[in-house]
């Protein structure tokens, strides 16, 4: 294969190839584990398809309206309001964590600090639609305490990451 051809194949294709090879291995070792995993995969893949559509829409809106100037205006101002925005965005976001990575990468490229991305990801742990289930299992007092602690620690983590991982490193 020409060297240029190898260069054109991105790391993402090697990654999926490695996972497919792992599945082939599992198929020979444990066919039941293979079929159970494929069934689980099919189910969650179908579930996240609408979220993909939402992410695509948000990415397009982000590309359209959130340019460097916008970010400089709204995201680079130090203060509580920016943390508040990140916390709310994290809490209301839905779907698996990795579906949001592309949007976060876009925001990072537009100058948003890594700490804010970390705080966003941390707050995704608070799932409003799942609160009734969480209260059912652990009680209202426990969930209230945990939620307040998580919001507080998301800001602490964000500040820490801003120091540990500067925007231009």
């Amino acid at each position: 294969m020409p060297k240029q051809g190898i260069k054109k194949i991105g790391g993402e294709w090697f990654f999926i190839l490695a996972v497919v090879l792992l599945y082939i291995l599992v198929l020979f070792i444990s066919p039941s584990l293979f079929s159970e995993s494929i069934r689980f995969f099919s189910r969650i893949f179908v579930q996240i398809l609408p979220i993909f559509a939402l992410v695509f829409l948000l990415m397009t809106v982000s590309n359209l309206f959130i340019n460097r100037q916008f970010v400089a205006e709204y995201f680079k101002k130090p203060g509580i309001s920016k943390w508040f925005f990140v916390i709310i965005a994290g809490i209301i976001s839905t779907g698996p964590i990795y579906v949001w990575y592309p949007l976060l990468a876009e925001l990072r490229d537009k100058g948003v600090g890594y700490g804010y991305l970390a705080a966003f990801l941390y707050n995704r742990a608070i799932k409003i639609p799942l609160l009734p289930v969480a209260i059912f299992y652990f009680g209202l007092k426990y969930i209230l305490v945990l939620t307040l602690l998580m919001v507080t620690f998301s800001v602490i983590q964000g500040m820490l990451i801003n120091r540990l991982v500067p925007a231009e490193h």
Binding site: A18, V19, V20, S37, I38, N63, V99
Partner: peptide, 29 residues
């Protein structure tokens, strides 16, 4: 332009996300 950029990004990420979902499914079982 924005749609084109988003589509390119999603196309690049599809194998990564599919791979991640496959790994998650395997660990879960």
């Amino acid at each position: 332009k924005s749609l084109d950029k988003s589509a390119k990004t999603m196309a690049r990420l599809l194998p990564i996300i599919t791979g991640a979902l496959l790994l998650v499914s395997l660990f879960n079982n």
